[in-house]
């Protein structure tokens, strides 16, 4: 790991235009908290960058808050669909939540959604068919459970983060 230093991040220039580099530099002081493998830092940091004021975070905070509301609503619907064995609906819901979670960079949740979406279409994650409905239901059940756990965990971290507190207790 010697070649990859954690603080190299500040020197890298993954943001392209001169314009954004400038704005980027202005938030150098801010260091991205470690959300662990819950969050794709690169994606999430781009969203944080959109905040005009990083103390109030008027853009990103409601976005994240809304996401968790959306996620919880979706989980309720998923539970219902799972009871009904409505795989099509599950797949559709999985796709729905996958879109926003991946755009926010919430990787773990996104992965679970991907599993649900695919299994709902009787597919494995790699796209190969999974003919056994029971297996699919089982996969969905597990993925949904994982998604809920991850969501709860991440939500706590995010709440602390937006409250300006240190997030990690892991």
């Amino acid at each position: 790991m010697a070649m990859v230093e954690a603080d190299d991040r500040d020197d890298e220039g993954s943001i392209p235009s001169t314009h954004s580099i400038r704005s980027r530099r202005s938030i150098r002081s801010f260091s991205m908290p470690d959300f662990g493998d819950h969050v794709d830092d690169q994606i999430f940091s781009q969203i944080l960058e959109m905040d005009d004021d990083e103390t109030t975070r008027e853009f990103s905070e409601p976005l994240v808050t809304n996401f968790f509301e959306q996620a919880e609503e979706t989980f309720v619907k998923m539970d219902q669909a799972l009871t009904d064995k409505n795989l099509e609906e599950l797949s559709s819901l999985g796709h729905f939540l996958k879109g926003s979670s991946s755009t926010l960079g919430f990787s773990k949740i996104k992965d679970s959604c991907q599993i649900i979406q695919q299994a709902g279409h009787m597919l494995n994650v790699d796209g190969s068919p999974e003919p056994d409905e029971k297996v699919c239901v089982k996969k969905i059940t597990e993925a949904l459970k994982a998604a809920k756990v991850d969501t709860t965990e991440l939500k706590q971290k995010m709440e602390r983060f937006f409250a300006g507190k240190p997030i990690g207790d892991n």
Partner: peptide
């Protein structure tokens, strides 16, 4: 590649988001 992806998905590109997290 999405880490959980199996090799059978040879013809697909995958969303570029998964690099940093360690599944």
């Amino acid at each position: 590649q999405t880490p959980i992806q199996s090799p059978a998905t040879t013809s697909s590109w995958h969303s570029p988001s998964q690099m940093t997290h360690t599944s």
